[in-house]
């Protein structure tokens, strides 16, 4: 019973994490977008990333942790250092999401084209 409860709580926290961490949360913050832009070009260490900002190394680590949890970055150990690089394919989820809205407008305008062509017929 106790194990079940623990398992339940763990599952809850897992599903909560999935809900909270996705690519949209990753790009919601301007600083994270700037980090994404940097590591899209080349893999970088947290220190090298931090040199581009006027903030503490801790703040960069916090953002990198969120980006990792959003599954947007990969980490590679090179000697004593960890290099972060971008999983660029994850960003395509954003395009897929936007594409839905394009389709909504397309469906709308198909209908409007029909409405207008009927109006033109009525006028004649």
């Amino acid at each position: 019973m106790r194990n079940q409860i623990v398992a339940y709580i763990c599952n809850q926290s897992v599903s909560f994490k999935i809900m909270r961490r996705d690519v949209f949360q990753a790009i919601a913050d301007p600083k994270r977008r700037a980090i994404i832009a940097l590591i899209a070009v080349q893999a970088m260490t947290p220190n090298a990333i931090a040199e581009n900002f006027n903030t503490s190394r801790q703040s960069i680590s916090k953002h990198l942790k969120i980006l990792s949890e959003c599954d947007l970055v990969k980490q590679e150990q090179q000697g004593r250092e960890i290099h972060y690089s971008l999983k660029i394919e994850k960003l395509q989820e954003v395009d897929a999401w936007i594409e839905q809205y394009r389709q909504i407008w397309e469906s709308r305008f198909d209908q409007l084209d029909n409405v207008l062509s009927n109006l033109k017929k009525d006028k004649k």
Partner: peptide
């Protein structure tokens, strides 16, 4: 005609909602 389709409710209702 287009202006009417965007500004008159009986026309708007024919197309505003995506299927």
């Amino acid at each position: 005609l287009v202006w009417d389709a965007f500004t008159k409710k009986e026309l708007l209702d024919q197309w505003w909602a995506p299927k």
